[in-house]
Design a protein around this nucleic acid. Structure first.
Lengths: 187, 187
DNA sequence: TCTCACATGTAACTAGTTACATGATTGC
DNA sequence: GCAATCATGTAACTAGTTACATGTGAGA
């Protein structure tokens, strides 16, 4: 089993979805922490079905092309439930901006400032998007936030992580900017 | 050029190193944001040399096996300097713990608590390590922190990022723990 | 003698990306 | 007629991981 396989099972444990819908969810909002393209999703679904973890039925749509709607099986539910709390190896984080920061002393000051300004803007935008989702969550289902074992709380918890991650990243970008701007005339 | 190639050039822009030394640095401290194994590093060095970005000389050591010490060329310096501020596509972040969090409603409460306790401990340990490096940095070369275009400031800047990242992650783990512990009897 | 750190490589595999490929239906 | 969204697939490539492979020298 690949991690993507578990990701798909996790989504299908909430509701039956087509490959297309799964691809959409793996862009927003799940895609913020586990993105995947359709070219990876379709073969993975076939593998999950071969393993007996999901089934599909073809749903005919009058106004749109037919689709295959996948549903999780009993066995699939067992597998995903076990996975959630199974031992995890230390994840490897790769961040190209931090790598570039390690080499920042080589760069031209003006271009460097532009780079960090761009990233600050990106993270500010992402933060705003997460905060929008969080607001929706609070408005739409405030009771879910108190039921820790509801799917909605799980979504809320990932949003909290996204928000604090982006806020922290943004603050760091601004700190770097303040450092490299203070020494404007040195470069 | 791969990102690893630039990472190696960035390290060699600071000082000449052997493949073995590069591998060590790509575990600690650079490895915290761009890990790589020796099996990837040695072929990459050969590619960089073929492209004229680095050269090597064999250094004989009386007490240890001979080694190839790589040095960056003029051309290599130009390439790495350009790269630092070149346009960057939006990086894709994959975090399996956040993915699992999205599925946390499926899990057994006790096991889930254990999972988050383990991760909280990991991030606390990583935070302590970064803070140790930062302390060293401050003690050893306090003047570097005021010279934004020194290699030491660049290192310090990545450390600041590591520290705030780990602190934020740790806080989030503890927040999740407080949520799932408050509802102890529900599961 | 055995283990550890130093030192350098190759081979096989896996996950993920990019590109290729097809086709329905709606709205401009 | 053309572009956009919905819908599903395959092929080729790239980066990264795991495993295989070899050898030196120091110290216990």
């Amino acid at each position: 089993m690949t991690t993507l396989g578990y990701a798909l099972l996790g989504l299908l444990a909430r509701e039956p979805l087509s490959g297309y819908d799964l691809a959409r969810q793996l862009k927003h909002p799940v895609g913020f922490f586990w993105p995947a393209r359709h070219s990876q999703i379709y073969p993975e679904l076939a593998a999950l079905e071969a393993a007996g973890l999901v089934t599909h039925e073809v749903v005919e749509q009058p106004d749109r092309p037919d689709k295959k709607v996948y549903a999780i099986t009993e066995q699939g539910q067992t597998v995903v439930r076990e996975w959630v709390t199974s031992p995890m190896d230390v994840p490897s984080v790769r961040d190209e901006l931090v790598l570039r920061t390690y080499c920042l002393w080589l760069a031209e000051p003006d271009k460097l400032r532009a780079l960090f300004q761009e990233h600050a803007a990106r993270h500010a935008a992402q933060l705003a998007e997460y905060e929008g989702y969080e607001h929706e969550c609070r408005e739409h289902a405030p009771e879910a936030l108190h039921d820790t074992w509801s799917p909605l709380f799980a979504k809320y918890a990932t949003l909290r992580r996204g928000i604090s991650y982006e806020r922290e990243y943004l603050e760091w970008c601004n700190w770097v900017l303040s450092c490299i701007t203070a020494q404007d005339t040195d470069g």
